[in-house]
């Protein structure tokens, strides 16, 4: 898989302290002449996030795990972040960059709220926030000092009365689509999301969208499939629903899983060969 989109640590040089390459960062050389000023890789990471447009809004999903290399380090981390009344982020990648970025945006929105009492103007739309993020991430990659994240921005535009869903990552790459997934989710969940979306809306997207309940069940399925196949995932996740009523972030939940089939697999069950 492309190095840029797998947020697991790059395989490090094995040594006596890290025989199985579980640390996210290889040991630094004792002395080096090359300056190493900037983040060149993520450390504590969140895995893929999902998003889908449904009838009346957008839903985002992200699990609660923050990994340290292959170690499931923090198991109660919320990776869905509401911004204002009608926008929400789902963030994959480096968790410290995530915290830095959300702090920056929270401060920006708070400052805007303060000023809005005397200097009246419309609140930030999801598109406004997305453009800000895109510019931030592209500017940082252009300094070769990236913020190591892939982000889904979900929102409801109150002016246009339409939903908003778009992607931006550490390279400043941007795009929008009715279903989105980052990282390994782009390979495993995105096909499932597109299939279900197009089954109702048609390939031109002009038919009816999934209902809220259908969309949530679809995300539940995708999160389960990801938990089965993504070694850096956790069966504990949240779903954000963004609609005209605002942003609602669910409590953490789990999928029912069935591991009986695994008993027959070589390497999992009792057999040795």
């Amino acid at each position: 898989m492309n190095q840029l989109h797998s947020f697991q640590a790059v395989p490090s040089t094995r040594n006596a302290f890290d025989a199985y390459s579980t640390l996210p960062e290889p040991p630094r050389p004792q002395s080096t002449h090359a300056p190493r000023a900037h983040t060149q890789q993520p450390i504590v990471t969140g895995t893929s996030v999902l998003g889908i447009k449904y009838e009346g809004g957008v839903m985002l999903a992200a699990d609660n795990l923050a990994s340290y290399g292959s170690l499931a380090r923090f198991k109660d981390i919320q990776r869905l972040h509401p911004l204002g009344d009608n926008t929400c982020l789902a963030v994959a990648g480096d968790m410290s960059d995530f915290q830095y970025m959300t702090k920056l945006l929270d401060a920006t929105l708070r400052a805007d709220r303060s000023v809005s009492l005397t200097d009246t103007h419309p609140p930030f739309s999801p598109q406004n926030i997305y453009t800000y993020l895109s510019n931030l991430y592209y500017a940082r990659r252009s300094k070769v000092n990236p913020l190591w994240n892939a982000i889904l921005v979900g929102g409801w535009d109150k002016e246009k009365k339409e939903s908003f869903l778009a992607y931006v990552d550490l390279l400043g790459t941007t795009y929008s689509a009715p279903t989105l997934a980052t990282g390994i989710g782009a390979h495993i969940a995105q096909p499932l999301l597109r299939e279900a979306y197009e089954a109702k809306a048609g390939v031109d997207g002009k038919g009816p969208l999934l209902t809220g309940q259908e969309a949530e069940e679809l995300l539940d399925t995708c999160m389960k499939v990801l938990f089965y196949r993504d070694a850096r995932s956790l069966n504990k996740y949240q779903i954000a629903t963004i609609s005209n009523d605002g942003v609602k972030i669910s409590d953490s939940k789990s999928s029912e899983t069935e591991w009986g089939f695994a008993e027959g697999l070589r390497g999992y069950g009792p057999q040795t060969q």
């Binding site: 708070r110 709220r113 303060s114 000023v115 809005s116 009492l117 005397t118």
Partner: peptide, 9 residues
């Protein structure tokens, strides 16, 4: 020309 302003939430 409001005379009361917000500084924080």
């Amino acid at each position: 020309n409001r005379r009361i302003q917000s500084l924080d939430d």
